[in-house]
Measured scan of single mutants.
Amino acid sequence: MTEYKLVVVGAGGVGKSALTIQLIQNHFVDEYDPTIEDSYRKQVVIDGETCLLDILDTAGQEEYSAMRDQYMRTGEGFLCVFAINNTKSFEDIHHYREQIKRVKDSEDVPMVLVGNKCDLPSRTVDTKQAQDLARSYGIPFIETSAKTRQGVDDAFYTLVREIRKHKEKMSKDGKKKKKKSKTKCVIM
């Protein structure tokens, strides 16, 4: 069974824990209790493949930012979460993405942009803004509501699919490099 290491990042209060708990335990946590770091595991079937999701729910508070490099190193894919009623959390996505790329030393890291709290009427981040940002990053965008469960499975499952595509691409690139290195030079 394939294991996928997913990391949920975003500013404090955007609903990272609520999304994760909704996926794992099928219930909505409405009281806000700032996370330092929590880890969850769940076995699911995605596109006919049974897999184990190892999900790291991270601290959004700035005082825990020193811990970010460590979990970013171990993560295979990242859910970059903002709240649709919090423009600052949307603007912060850029910083999370840049930090992930720096730590992973790669421009090509599996990510999904997630606009959470889409059940709320007080939207300050337009869907088109988020779609445009995701398009500019070359990553999928999904709106979710941890409260109603809308888009929750889709967000995590899409990230797994992005990781699969990335692994497939990397193995193809690896095979191309191996083929090239088999060419021999004969000096007579």
Rank of each mutant, 00 (worst) to 15 (best):
C80G: 06
G77H: 01
L120K: 08
A66V: 07
R164M: 10
M188F: 12
P110M: 03
Q70R: 07
Q131R: 09
K169Q: 08
R73F: 13
T158R: 03
Y32P: 01
E76L: 06
V14W: 11
D126A: 07
E37V: 01
L120A: 09
A11M: 12
G10I: 02
A11Q: 05
N26D: 12
V81Q: 09
D69F: 09
T183V: 13
K128V: 05
R68Y: 02
G75N: 09
E63M: 03
V186N: 09
A11F: 13
I21R: 05
H94Q: 13
K172A: 14
I21F: 01
G77T: 11
V152K: 13
N26H: 11
C51D: 10
E76N: 06
K176C: 07
Y40F: 01
G60L: 00
E63H: 05
I142F: 09
T124L: 07
K169F: 14
A59L: 00
K5R: 09
E31P: 11
K169N: 13
G138T: 03
E49R: 08
A134D: 09
D105E: 06
S17F: 00
G60P: 01
I100W: 04
G15P: 01
K88A: 14
E37N: 01
D126G: 07
K178F: 10
R149A: 10
D38S: 00
M67E: 03
S106N: 09
T127A: 06
G115M: 11
L159W: 03
E31I: 13
G15T: 01
L23H: 15
T35M: 00
Q22Y: 04
T124A: 09
Y64L: 03
E49A: 10
I84A: 14
G151D: 08
Y71T: 11
G115E: 10
D153N: 07
I139R: 07
D47E: 11
D47Q: 10
D69S: 08
K42T: 07
P34G: 01
E91I: 15
V9W: 02
V9D: 02
D108A: 12
R161P: 01
R164Q: 05
I21S: 08
Q129I: 04
V125C: 08
Y4W: 04
R68S: 10
A66Y: 12
D30Y: 12
Q150L: 15
K172L: 06
I55M: 06
V9K: 01
D132E: 05
L6K: 03
R97C: 15
Y4H: 14
K16A: 01
A18S: 07
D33M: 01
A130P: 09
G10W: 02
P34N: 01
K167R: 09
S89L: 02
V29Q: 11
E76S: 07
K176W: 13
D108M: 11
Q70K: 06
Y32A: 02
